[in-house]
Nucleic acid binder design. Structure first.
Lengths: 236, 236
DNA sequence: GATGATTTGTACGTATGTATA
DNA sequence: ATATACATACGTACAAATCAT
């Protein structure tokens, strides 16, 4: 009788069952769906994620919802307090400072490692990606540039050839994503970003570890500056 | 009728209910208990953590067990595969290399930041802790030294004044703990460790960020060397 | 500040997928 | 290879805590 409910997969499919990623669990798919919704901005920082509502919305019971929430909590994207449920993570200004600071350090470290250990193929790919971004910046196509920018940084994470650091870098990027939505809105930011990338790429291609570190650190510090007062009101 | 089960808290208390940390949930206490058991070596890498058995052992239902496992999985201490349950994380040699490499980078970064931003009080405390370790090393008291060593590194994490980096450093240390149990077993390792610490402390006290980074990186690299072939057989 | 409504935390039952004989 | 056994994933029920009035 319950299998009947699962047989009516129509609703489910529209919401979650991607069918391509068939072999995972509901909780995993849920975690991804909720994370997406957070990164998209659908659930804003501070938003209270109620188990019952999520269960209803995604047509599952509360059990997988709870497991998904626990996952997201561990990744820092949401915060849970016992008996008080989960809310989309809000960052105080001190926490944002920590996050941006850590991000700059980790990105710089990855750039340094990348300069030392990227393969020729990886270097060439990074370079050509960077070249391609000239045109996007010139068109002032912010959306495309933002996407390419993510790829650019991800390639450097991979190029560091250290999965643990790369994972951490990706997780930091995710946690900061809700606060970076407007990153390239400022006038001329694309051109500046591209110029900073150029320094990074040059150092990496030259296998100059120190310069790569410095250039990336500088780049990330400027990114941070673009986000002066984004902090949420501190919650005691 | 179920509340009767909870009323028989005697068994529970022996296992979990610390009573001091009263206000958390079962799942949280469980996660800590299981993590402890893993770090103690009671559950060795590769050990299969069966929900039913854990539930029985800790006198709870499978639900909080599952949530605890989900938490630990996210922290990297255990690995879960859908429909196949959880096992204590085993690291391949490549993963261990990543972990030690990341650890060295992060520790070095924390040391650099600590050199720049530790308060005078923090500096003094670090120094006196370090001085106290001379005596422990001289006695060759490995257990005490290991404990003090953890404190030493933790103080540097805190001294970096960046919670995100500090958390990451602690999490890395935890993930590596199962592989570091024999760290100070080698003859004369304590004295060597203390000498390396001395360089780090000196640099931090001198506010020499570059030197602090280099000294700590060197120290951590030597630690890594002490763990040549600890890797588990790759399970691809 | 007490009472009722809502929501979380935990227990338990059932079905499906994985492993094993 | 088939079937059996078993562990995991999910749904549902209920108790206790939080919150809103």
């Amino acid at each position: 009788m319950l299998s009947a409910l699962r047989a009516t997969g129509d609703h489910l499919d529209t919401a979650l069952n991607t069918r391509e990623t068939a072999s995972s669990t509901q909780a995993e798919r849920l975690a991804e769906a909720i994370a997406d919704a957070i990164l998209t901005g659908e659930y804003a920082p501070g938003f209270h994620l109620e188990e019952g509502l999520l269960a209803e919305r995604y047509n599952v019971s509360r059990t997988p919802v709870r497991e998904a929430l626990r996952n997201l909590s561990a990744s820092g994207l949401i915060e849970t307090r016992p008996r008080r449920g989960a809310t989309v993570a809000t960052a105080t200004s001190a926490q944002l400072e920590s996050l941006f600071g850590a991000m700059a350090e980790i990105e710089a470290t990855c750039a340094r490692l990348a300069a030392m250990s990227m393969t020729p193929i990886e270097r060439r790919r990074l370079d050509s990606l960077h070249e391609g971004m000239i045109e996007i910046a010139r068109r002032d196509d912010r959306e495309s540039y933002a996407a390419a920018n993510v790829t650019f940084h991800m390639e450097i994470y991979s190029g560091a050839h250290n999965d643990v650091l790369a994972d951490f870098a990706r997780s930091l990027r995710r946690r900061l994503a809700p606060y970076r939505r407007a990153q390239f809105r400022a006038e001329g930011r694309l051109a500046r970003s591209h110029a900073e990338h150029a320094t990074v790429v040059a150092a990496i291609l030259a296998c100059d570890a120190g310069a790569a570190h410095a250039a990336m650190f500088h780049h990330m510090s400027l990114v941070e500056d673009a986000f002066g007062q984004l902090a949420a009101p501190s919650r005691a």
